[in-house]
Simulated assay, not measured.
Amino acid sequence: MLTLVAAVMHASWNAIVKVVMDRAVVLGLIALSHTAVGAVMIAIAGIPNPASWPFILASTLLHYGYYVCLHHAYRVGDLSQVYPLARGLAPLLVALGAWAFAGETMSPAAWGAVLLASAGISALAFSRRGGMWDHPPTLFYTVATGLIIASYSVVDGMGVRLAGQPLAYMGWLFVWEFPVFVTVLLRRRRTLHAIPLAGVVKGIGGGLLSVAAYSLVIYAATLAPLAAISAVRESSVIIAALIGTLLLGESHWRQRCGAAAVVAVGIAFLATLK
Rank of each mutant, 00 (worst) to 15 (best):
V8A: 15
V8K: 09
M9W: 11
A11W: 08
A15S: 15
A15T: 14
I16N: 06
V19N: 03
V20N: 01
V20T: 09
M21S: 06
M21E: 10
D22I: 03
V25P: 01
V25W: 06
L27T: 08
I30K: 00
A31R: 01
L32N: 03
T35D: 05
A36V: 13
A36I: 15
M41L: 13
I42V: 14
I44F: 06
G46E: 04
P48D: 13
P50V: 13
W53F: 15
P54W: 08
F55H: 13
I56N: 09
I56R: 13
T60D: 13
L62S: 13
Y66P: 11
V68L: 15
L70F: 10
Y74T: 07
V76W: 07
D78V: 01
L79I: 10
S80F: 02
Q81D: 02
P84V: 04
L85T: 11
G88E: 05
L89Y: 05
L92A: 12
G97S: 01
W99Q: 02
A100R: 06
T105I: 09
M106P: 12
S107R: 11
P108W: 09
A110N: 07
S118T: 12
G120W: 04
I121V: 03
S122L: 09
S122T: 06
R128H: 12
R129Q: 09
R129I: 02
M132E: 03
H135G: 06
P137F: 11
T138K: 09
L139M: 14
Y141A: 06
A144S: 15
A144H: 05
T145C: 15
L147Y: 08
I148E: 06
A150K: 12
D156H: 07
D156W: 06
G157T: 02
G159P: 04
R161W: 03
G164W: 06
P166F: 05
A168Q: 03
A168W: 01
Y169R: 01
M170E: 11
G171K: 00
W172L: 08
L173D: 05
W176S: 14
F178M: 05
P179C: 04
V182C: 08
T183G: 13
V184H: 06
R187L: 11
A194G: 10
I195N: 00
P196A: 09
P196E: 06
L197S: 05
L197W: 00
V200W: 15
K202S: 04
G207K: 00
A213F: 00
L216V: 01
V217H: 02
V217P: 02
T222K: 13
T222S: 12
P225L: 13
I229Q: 10
R233H: 10
V237Q: 06
I238A: 04
A240H: 14
A241L: 12
L242K: 13
T245M: 10
L248R: 02
E250D: 05
H252E: 04
W253F: 02
R254Y: 05
R256K: 15
C257E: 13
G258P: 12
G258D: 08
G258T: 03
A260M: 10
A260C: 09
V263T: 07
A264C: 08
A268Q: 04
L270D: 05
L270Y: 12
K274H: 15
